[in-house]
Amino acid sequence: MVHAVLFAILSAIAVVAAISTVLRRHPLGSALSLIVAMIALAGLYALLTAPIVAILQILVYAGAILALIVFVIMLLNVRAEDLEYEKDAVPRTLFALVVAALPFGAMAWAIWQVVPAPLPAVATRFGNLSAIGLHLFGAWSLPFELVSLLLTVAMVGSVALAKRRLEG
């Protein structure tokens, strides 16, 4: 019962925050809404017995990535008059959301057709740190290392990009 209630609350927060993210005219508002959505998602992960993912979602997504976005928005000092070009953002996005409801409906129907069964029980240790770690550094060690390489490349790339000035 508690589980169902928590699920209802968290998913409602996530969806509303998501809609708010795409509807806000100023990116700062979007970013703050997105943080809320991320945290709600972290709660959902926790409900799915994925505590490590939940923690990293908050740490990395909400904590680092979104903080970075907010930081850049403030760095660029985006003012209301800079957003004049997008006066019709709210109605247009609302229209898009309504249109998107159609494929969503189709997909929801499909999901219901395919996986109606309740979640099975899992071992108590499922999703705890040591189990995740064993898998990450066992069978998944190559992708893991590749990702670390990717991060290095991205770091170098972003530094190179930020230092350079485009002409024309």
């Binding site: 589980h3 169902a4 699920f7 998913s11 996530a14 969806v15 998501a18 809609i19 993210t21 795409v22 806000r24 005219r25 990116p27 979007s30 970013a31 959505a37 998602l41 959902l44 409900l47 799915l48 976005i69 850049v72 928005i73 985006v78 957003l83 070009y85 997008e86 953002a89 247009r92 996005t93 229209f95 898009a96 959301l97 249109v99 998107a100 409801a101 494929p103 969503f104 997909m107 929801a108 999901i111 219901w112 996986v115 109606p116 069964a117 309740p118 979640l119």
Partner: peptide
């Protein structure tokens, strides 16, 4: 217990909201 379908529907909802924003919005950040 909420079945997997519930979570998947939240996932689908979030995906289409994101898609709508991606197509409709003109602000780089958004």
């Amino acid at each position: 217990m909420i079945p997997a379908a519930g979570y998947l529907m939240v996932s689908a909802a979030l995906f289409f909201i994101g898609a709508a924003g991606f197509v409709a919005r003109r602000n780089l950040f958004t």
